[in-house]
Amino acid sequence: MKVAVFPPNSLILADLIERKGHKPLVLQSEIRKKVVDAEIDSPPLNITEEDPIKGLKYAAIEVPSGVRGRMAIFGPLIDEAEAAIIMDEAPFGFGCIGCARTNELCVYYLRKKGIPTLELKYPVTRDETVEVVNKINTFLDQLEEENG
């Protein structure tokens, strides 16, 4: 199944999803498509004026361009998602797209979608970490069963 994650660029969540045979929907793969595109020259991410305009699908014109630019990349991943894992209160080293307003909007869209969603609080102790990983694995196993 295609599983969206939040933060949308969390390598740890992406890795856990891949280990269970699902497809993580992460920002890196989308950014990769952009940065290897020889047609575009708008470093560092090859996001052009067109992208924040595409982001209008997810946020209105009065919303800052940076939020819309981020949504232009992450929004289609949310559209594609069949399941989601949301990690709340994660430090930025765990994964982050830099903007609190985008975070609020992404989490809201994921919740609104009505897909199987696992919401977790970022673990701060060893025991909590083991519990969180177990919860993620159980959630991913169940997805597999549901998927047949």
Binding site: P44, I47, P52, P64, S65
Partner: peptide, 15 residues
């Protein structure tokens, strides 16, 4: 700055 990359304007700033 914040947002220049995702707004697609970094190149314009450098130019």
């Amino acid at each position: 700055s914040c947002g220049t990359d995702f707004s697609g304007v970094q190149k314009e700033i450098e130019k």
